[in-house]
Design a protein around this nucleic acid. Structure first.
Lengths: 341, 341
DNA sequence: GGTTAATTTGCACATGTGTGCAATATGTGA
DNA sequence: TCACATATTGCACACATGTGCAAATTAACC
């Protein structure tokens, strides 16, 4: 065996490489690589020396270089509309955790506005992602096609209508909205208003449809229609616009919980109304906050656990069968009856 | 120029590569690479043909392969304790957005528990990260050293005490806690209790210290000491433990806003107390929720904007001067006076 | 057309890994 | 000691890209 050359100090601006370790330990680079490959064959004493040198230099194999060959980067992109939004942030957190469990890393995209720019989505496709999970029903068909051409499996969450070649998972928004609206009607409310979310998202469109259909089936017309941005402040302002009309609604169905809670605040604190006596409020999602004693918000549960389970299920099945057809799974929403209606 | 061979269909399980484009367009791979490199020299008609073929095949240069050579992956890891926690999720969202502005992608780590396992941190270092931002004061000195050996700049957020060779940014937790406690004393409260967070985190330790020092300066002893996990439920339960003592505290200082809001709920809805008449409550952070009409929580502002600005500033300065010494920046907390004290 | 300058092009290398393959070293049994 | 089986080792390639360099082509000008 050749003697090790005088330990060359790697330039401090470079990452320690397997070559550095090999040189310092006086072995071949292959030996270093095998030392870090479970099951590979290296002599015990040599492995020990290599591990010591690696520890000393702080060496770790560069996954990125490895993934060039292995064709799997273990990176999964999560695109979310608004991380400031509680529902989105919790679902993202759950996904991050579950991805980590199967050895994948989450590259998270999403600003604090609400709409997703396709520009960012295309940019991150420069990385050879193992998959891409998009939180939001509305996505360009064109963007989806580009994902497929790059062999990046796509999962759309928050969408319950099928899309060619793409896995989708979402709750039955129309059904959920109908559930809420029918419940208000059943309890005798007749002047029911609607506070919608960002109009370009399918969740808003579908919940809006459900609201209108349930209403018209009962021979009623909407008492008010307002839209906001799925935020507390937006819901608060929209509720004020609804409730300051000459004939005040006696109920509000809100497109998500945060807006419902904003509406609740507007009704109680800005207008001094009693809930549910003067006004009934129903939300959508059932975020943790909805169950807090101070709110006790009646809502439609859009189960995060079920959604994340389903996403992970679709993902793993996609890894096993890359060429299977796109699948759409629907999560059943249920009414969670609390104190605001 | 040689004629293009009969368009070879790339195996569908492989990502489209520059070679594929070159072959189909009948040009060299270099030409393809130059076409996607701003400022490089390619004949106009050839570039056009290449772009057409690339569009047809859905080709994008693989950043990951490129970063092997360029020594910059444009990936920045964000390690956060608990994405379910509102403060953490908002700061993460802000960071994701600001990183995107400078062309970096965020790899987000963090489960929904609370404490960070060093195991995960070391694992993600397998990637040649451009930097790593850790949300939490408590991190192994050893882990920090490993980052430095791998030339991954480290930024600790939520820590205001210096650490060798590492950039830190945090608010003055001791000062903030003193501010809150002194305000309670000034308003005549004498039986002041404390609800702390996860004991292993420096933010908890420092706020605890500040609370005790302000109290003892005024010749007072704590009326109650309880700890929870920075969550609503934890704060709720801890408040009940505090308030069910024989001599009930007349004020609570809570280590963060969410626990304070939990305490508020416990006081009002479980025990029927009037806030602030029967009980004063002050939180820490000033999350958006604290300003909602239903809470009007008095709190210590731990400015997210300032924190994120500072993190980005440290980050960019680190990119420019990789070898400068570690720096610690402190953010001044201020009292936000609302309705709960 | 001839000379020179400018542009374009392809080759070849470097980036850090994992691994098949053949060669070598080591161990085992008679 | 020899024959044979097994364990270990190093070479060389593949992965997808960007780029320096020299050769080749084109443009410009007289």
């Amino acid at each position: 065996m050749t003697t090790a050359p005088p330990a060359p100090v790697p330039p401090p601006s470079r990452r320690v490489t397997a070559d550095d370790v090999a040189r310092l330990a006086g072995v071949s680079r292959s030996a270093v690589s095998r030392t870090f490959t479970p099951g590979a064959s290296v002599a015990a004493d040599k492995r020990e020396r290599i591990l010591a040198v690696a520890e000393h230099l702080g060496y770790r194999p560069n996954s990125l270089a490895a993934s060039l060959k292995s064709q799997s980067s273990n990176l999964v992109a999560i695109v979310t509309g608004n991380l400031g939004n509680h529902y989105d942030s919790v679902i993202t957190a759950e996904l991050v955790k579950r991805l980590a469990d199967i050895g994948k890393w989450a590259v998270v995209l999403g600003d604090t506005s609400g709409d997703i720019s396709n520009y960012d989505i295309l940019d991150v496709l420069a990385y050879p992602l193992d998959a891409m999970i998009i939180r939001a029903g509305s996505i360009d068909e064109d963007t989806a096609r580009k994902c497929m051409k790059l062999n990046v499996p796509l999962i759309l969450s928050g969408r319950s209508t099928p899309m060619d070649g793409v896995d989708c998972v979402g709750c039955d928004n129309v059904g959920g909205a109908r559930l809420a609206t029918q419940e208000l009607i059943r309890r005798g409310r007749t002047r029911i208003g609607y506070i919608g979310g960002i109009k370009s998202l399918t969740s808003e469109q579908e919940r809006h449809d459900g609201f209108l259909s349930a209403l018209s089936e009962a021979g009623l017309a909407p008492a008010a229609l307002e839209w906001a941005d799925f935020s507390f402040e937006g819901g608060h302002a929209a509720a004020l616009r609804c409730l300051n009309r000459t004939t005040r609604p006696d109920a509000l169905f809100c497109c998500n919980d945060i807006m419902a809670i904003g509406a609740l605040n507007a009704a109680r604190h800005a207008l001094g109304l009693q809930v549910p006596e003067d006004l009934a409020v129903i939300g959508f999602d059932d975020i943790a906050m909805a169950g807090w004693p101070c709110f006790g918000l009646t809502t439609i549960r859009n189960s995060i656990t079920n959604t994340v389970d389903t996403i992970m299920d679709l993902l793993e099945s996609r890894f096993l069968h890359p060429d299977r057809a796109g699948e759409t799974r629907c999560i059943d929403p249920i009414l969670i009856s609390r104190d605001t209606h």
